[in-house]
């Protein structure tokens, strides 16, 4: 019972930062902003569009992050995005428009089609393959153990009182050091 109370206390402490945080998502914030003004370069909708394209000024950032005060290039891009968004084009249409002109190189991430799809799926395919490998290896090792012997009472004791065993061992070591 005592431990449950302690865990509840821990949980409450954990939740305190969230309670005072009152997270507002970017979308909600954008709604508030857009009620007052037409447009904000840092709005969630604009972010969705502009962060798809990398800035070629050498800053290594996308057009959402790139600061227009130090990059003339991004100023024009940003203005074009706004114009297209005002025309009613969505982020996919805008992406397609630029990819048709500049190629896939202009994007900040590979497309999820054609050869570029391999960029996205390979890590998970490899992970799944390796995971299957690990499963079969463990199964083989477990079978080998089961073939050799059966669990003993000692095994069970080892698993249930592992912490106590370790503490006991450390205390024995401590006592031994006192005398030798």
């Amino acid at each position: 019972m005592k431990v449950i109370l302690q865990v509840i206390t821990l949980l409450v402490i954990f939740l305190i930062p969230f309670a005072s945080w009152q997270p507002v998502s970017a979308e909600e914030q954008t709604e508030k902003v857009e009620q007052k003004e037409e447009f904000d370069y840092k709005s969630a909708e604009f972010k969705g569009v502009a962060s798809q394209f990398k800035c070629t000024c050498g800053c290594g950032q996308d057009h959402y992050e790139c600061d227009p005060s130090t990059c003339n290039l991004t100023t024009e891009w940003k203005a074009d995005f706004v114009e297209m968004m005002n025309k009613g084009m969505d982020k996919d249409e805008i992406r397609k428009y630029y990819v048709d002109i500049y190629g896939e190189e202009i994007l900040t991430a590979p497309e999820k089609k054609g050869f570029s799809l391999t960029a996205w799926v390979t890590p998970f395919v490899v992970l799944a393959g390796a995971g299957s490998g690990v499963f079969f290896v463990i199964r083989r090792w477990v079978r080998r153990k089961n073939d050799n012997d059966t669990p003993t009472l000692m095994d069970e004791n080892l698993t249930t009182d592992e912490t106590e065993n370790e503490i006991l061992q450390s205390m024995i070591d401590e006592e031994r050091k006192k005398f030798f």
Binding site: S51, Q52, K54, L107, A109, S116, A119
Partner: peptide
């Protein structure tokens, strides 16, 4: 590793050096 070298892989296979950035 795969994401880091993919631009080189893509360039070698298709001749297109794509960018693999934060969204990926």
């Amino acid at each position: 590793f795969w994401g880091t070298i993919f631009p080189l892989v893509s360039e070698a296979v298709r001749g297109t050096k794509v960018t693999v950035g934060i969204p990926y």
